[in-house]
Design a binder for these strands. Structure first.
Lengths: 193, 193
DNA sequence: CAAGAATTAGGACAATTGACCTAGTCTCGT
DNA sequence: ACGAGACTAGGTCAATTGTCCTAATTCTTG
C-alpha cells in the first residue's frame, strides 16, 4: 500500500463515492468509513462538504489535464488522439453503464442543486472541448474546430446517458463505431453534422 | 383554479420538484410546502417516498404516451413527427439549460442511487425509442429503424447534458440544426451514423 | 529528549430526514 | 340527519445529516 496522505485518501475515496453514489447522497460518514478514519477527524482537513467537492473537482481537473497531455505526447497525430478520447467510452464501459459519465452526471446533479461549484465542474468538460478543438484544428477544420469538438463531446455524453439508462453494451459499441466512422469524414464531414 | 385532487396536486408538484431539484434532494417538507398541505397529511396518499416516485414516473409515462399519440395524430408524415420530437429541445430550452432533460437526469440519478425504479424511468426513454423507430420504419429505414431511433435519442440526450453544463443556447440551436440536417439524409444517412 | 505543531479519535450539537400515529373535520350515501 | 369512511393537521419517533469541540496521540524539530 502506497500510504498516501490522509487528505489525498479522502479526496480519492470521495471522488469515487461522488461518482458512484452522487454528491448529495454521499455523507461524511460514508467517506470516513471507506477511508477508515473517524468522522470528526477530517474536519481538520476539510471544513465543509463543499470543500471536499472543490478538492474532488480540482483533482479531476488535474487528472484530466494529465491525461490530455499524455495523449498529446503520444505522437500518433490528431485523428488518433481524438480516437483515444472516444475510446474512453469503451475502456470505462462497465462503470459508465452503471453510473454514467463522471463529469456529465456531476454537472447535471450540481445544476439541480443550484450549487456554486457547477461552473467549475463544467470546466472539466471545457478542458476536453478545448483539447478536442485543438485536434480538429490540426486536422484542418479551421473555424469549425470548436463546433466539431462540442459535437464529439455531446455525442459521447449522449451515449453515456443512454448506455447507463438501458444498460446496453451493444448500443455503446455501435455508437462508438458510429463516432469513429463520422470522424473519418472530418474535416469534410457529412452535411452539417 | 381547477382545484384538482390533493393526490394529483402532490404528484404534479413532486414531478416539478424532482426535475428541478432532484429526487434525493427533495424532501417531504418541500413537497408539502409547495402543495400547501401539512407534512403528515400525505401519508394518507403515499406511504413512502418511493410511492411518490412511482406515481411521478407513471404520470410521466402517461403524459409521454399522450404526447406521442398527439404527434401521431397530426398527419404530417413521419419526418415531420420526428422533427416534433427534436424541437422539444427548443421549446423547453430554458428548463433544459437549467436542469437538463427530465428523463435523462432522472435515470442518471436513480442509477447512482441504485434505485429499483430506475428501470421504470428508463421505460420513458423506451417509449420515445419505440415511437421514433416506428417513424423511421415509416420512412423506409427497415432494419436500421431502431438504431436510428436510438441515435436521435442519444443525440438529444447529449445536447441536453451539454446545454445545461455550459448553459449555452447557441450550442443548443446549432446542434438541433445539425440533427435536422442529418434527418434530411435519412433513410440513407451519411456513413454509418 | 523535550516542546510545539500536526494529526487523530470520539464524542456532542441542532437541524432535518422519512416514517408513523392519533385525533379531529369534512363528505356523502342512505 | 347521521354514521361510515375519506381526508387533514399536527405532533412524535429514531436515525442521520453537516458541523463543531476537546482531549489524546503522533510527528517534527531544535
Amino acid at each position: 500500500m502506497p500510504e498516501r496522505s490522509t487528505r489525498a485518501m479522502i479526496v480519492e475515496k470521495a471522488d469515487t463515492l461522488f461518482y458512484e453514489g452522487g454528491f448529495e447522497a454521499t455523507s461524511f460518514a460514508d467517506i470516513a468509513a471507506v477511508v477508515g478514519i473517524s468522522r470528526g477527524n477530517f474536519y481538520h482537513h476539510f471544513k465543509t462538504k463543499d470543500d471536499i467537492l472543490d478538492a474532488v473537482i480540482a483533482r479531476r481537473i488535474e487528472q484530466t489535464r494529465g491525461m490530455l497531455a499524455l495523449w498529446e505526447a503520444e505522437g500518433d497525430g490528431p485523428r488518433a488522439r481524438i480516437l483515444s478520447f472516444i475510446r474512453m467510452l469503451i475502456a470505462n464501459r462497465a462503470k459508465i453503464m452503471a453510473f454514467g459519465c463522471p463529469v456529465g452526471t456531476l454537472c447535471s446533479e450540481l445544476a439541480k442543486l443550484d450549487h456554486g461549484a457547477q461552473g467549475r465542474a463544467a470546466e472539466i468538460l471545457g478542458l476536453f472541448r478545448d483539447w478536442l478543438a485543438g485536434q480538429f484544428r490540426a486536422l484542418g477544420a479551421g473555424d469549425r474546430a470548436e463546433a466539431l469538438a462540442l459535437h464529439v463531446l455531446s455525442w459521447s455524453q449522449g451515449v453515456a446517458v443512454m448506455a447507463s439508462a438501458f444498460r446496453d453494451e451493444t448500443f455503446l459499441h455501435s455508437e462508438v463505431a458510429g463516432i469513429e466512422a463520422w470522424l473519418s469524414t472530418v474535416p469534410d464531414p457529412a452535411p452539417l453534422t
